[in-house]
Design a protein around this nucleic acid. Sequence first.
DNA 1: TGATATTTTTAGATCAATCTAAAAGAGATA
DNA 2: TATCTCTTTTAGATTGATCTAAAAATATCA
Lengths: 224, 224
Amino acid sequence: MTTRAEENYLKAILKIAEREKHAVTTNAISREIQTTAASVTDMLKRLAEKELVDYEKYRGVSLTERGRRLAIQLVRKHRLWEVFLVEHLEFGWDEVHDLAEELEHIGSATLINRLDDYLGNPKFDPHGDPIPNIDGKFTLRHQVPLAELTPGQHAQIVGVREHSTAFLTHLDEVGLVINSELLVLETFPYDHSLRIDLQGRQVVVSQKVARNIFVKPLNVDAHV
Amino acid sequence: MTTRAEENYLKAILKIAEREKHAVTTNAISREIQTTAASVTDMLKRLAEKELVDYEKYRGVSLTERGRRLAIQLVRKHRLWEVFLVEHLEFGWDEVHDLAEELEHIGSATLINRLDDYLGNPKFDPHGDPIPNIDGKFTLRHQVPLAELTPGQHAQIVGVREHSTAFLTHLDEVGLVINSELLVLETFPYDHSLRIDLQGRQVVVSQKVARNIFVKPLNVDAHV
DNA sequence: TGATATTTTTAGATCAATCTAAAAGAGATA
DNA sequence: TATCTCTTTTAGATTGATCTAAAAATATCA
């Protein structure tokens, strides 16, 4: 069995490993989990003991196959609960993270697989992040940052890079929500902002926001 | 904030207090929670410190108003999750206890109130136990043990006294499930068993089973 | 390369929750 | 009332998870 704390470390290690090429360092984990480096070292020893990570003093850490499977199952649980909270209990996409963080530790494979079926085996969570299936496989999808589009391109919003409440509520306010379609009208070289048509309304999007939104380009010509 | 362990003690104290008239003893709690008397004493001191219980050495313990409110909210959460698991995720009434035991510790008033609405504000859980409403009030209901009925009486099964998996799966096998209606045909003084008509089928029910099933007598004459 | 800065680990404490074994208190009864 | 039994509490240890402060290892760069 794994404890809640151990699970949180595994998830953190997976998250860091996904975004960085080099080995996962003690300090990176302490930043991610908001704890001291000393606590991380302690925990890494325990996780190595349980063969959930490969760890060598001063050399950083990586997940073992078992550790990786466990971490991915946690991600699966987290994202499925988020879908439930948003689709059935009417929570906003900006409100579900902390709750899912608690729910993900409930340990029953049956529960999560029934929940998956109940929700219709969704492939993406409310933020557009892929949900691993029962075997830990993620659905890949062609996506690019909104910031990379050029005038004339049509696209559909499919995800976000940032997950902070501040960012998500801002997107809600502006109407830049998952699944909405847009057309890039103009890009301003001066500050790299974009003017877009968002389902009939014209909106200006700053570079900061555009970099944190993922879109799927739509080939409009195909309809002609 | 209360920890998981503290919450489990509060629930145990409430449960014991409900079924016994005298003060809740250390030993009764240690039996209920499957722990040692020494651990219970320790925890009671901590709970008294937090003013969740009134505790005097060697004198037993009782919940304070705050402790009681907290314990009842836990019961509310537990039973609502059971409804969710049975009605939406297709779990059997004999399979949901342990899962609900974990889910009940997830602390968000909003979550549980949304869940309550989502489920249609049920008044009873899958075992027929009343679900406290948002203010902690239970819905009372006229119910008697099946063992107390006499020949000729019609009744509907509304609850169970025992919650063990063994008992519940036995009831499933025999068809003695919540909401089914029955008519007492005969009682056998020798072993206090009953012969009943259960929706067309004749079934003999032992005293042991009949004492652990709650029914609501139906006034059949009212239909004439 | 060697001094300095940064990262990581160790040493030693603390806290919650638990245990066993021993001591103390309460209740029952001869 | 004195004694025996059962219950409850205390004393002392252990485990997981965390901390701070100090020591050790590694990285940087003049």
